[in-house]
Nucleic acid binder design. Structure first.
Lengths: 117, 117
DNA sequence: TGAGTACATTGATGAACGTCGATGCTCAGT
DNA sequence: ACTGAGCATCGACGTTCATCAATGTACTCA
């Protein structure tokens, strides 16, 4: 049988391993989880994620994010890119606006890895 | 001389705010949560935490952590300090050995902040 | 076509971080 | 007191990161 392994490369996701407290993390798994957590470990990105998450449809456009965050537009754009590449947000462009939407499952997966549940 | 049963300085904890997705994080709360997450966002620290968590009594001494991690002793010591200051571990010295123990509640609190639960 | 808006990318800079070797400190035996 | 073991701290070095101004790109409307 040919093992056609499915590479869903779009969103990394963190479905990598057993919960942190269950059994020692392998180096590779630790590195992947660290990358994901590093994307969260910034005040600006946490606030961006939080604002998007509590917006209508868990979605917001960049123009509505710049002022509340209080950083320059390029910086906000940079943070949104980091969050998107980490799999927490998706980007969809409508007209001249770019809308970012939350991927709730991403946060849940991270959450589950941190507990024994 | 004094028998040192070391009560580690009370840990910050992350009981700061509502779940991330419920309502926009304030700057102060975002900064505190970011500091906590930054402590987790490193492969070596994730592995250390994981090894300690899956050890007997969720406790391990430094000497048992150096080899599995594959880093120098000062570096391991540094990471353990970061995790301790972030409230994930406690330190107790017995003889010449330093034992680090998991604080399970710390991980749970972080976990809960990332979901709407 | 031309101008303006919304957003991304680039390049640069200063700060923070991970890592190590060297050293200091404390405890247990001898 | 001396020696060695276990661990923490210090100082230094290279890398990564957050941030911004300047610029580029894509779209809208007149």
């Amino acid at each position: 049988m040919v093992a056609t392994l499915e590479v869903t490369d779009v969103t990394p996701g963190v479905t990598c391993c057993a919960p942190l407290v269950k059994k020692p993390l392998e180096q590779t798994d630790a590195e992947r989880l660290a990358v994901t957590l590093k994307a969260l470990a910034d005040p600006a990105r946490l606030r961006l994620l939080s604002i998007v998450a509590s917006s209508a449809g868990q979605e917001a456009c960049v123009c509505d994010l710049i002022d509340p965050i209080g950083l320059s537009q390029p910086t906000v754009s940079h943070h949104l890119k980091v969050l998107t590449e980490a799999g927490f947000l998706t980007r969809s462009k409508r007209g001249t606006w770019a809308y970012y939407r939350l991927i709730p499952k991403a946060l849940e997966q991270v959450s589950e890895l941190l507990t024994s549940a």
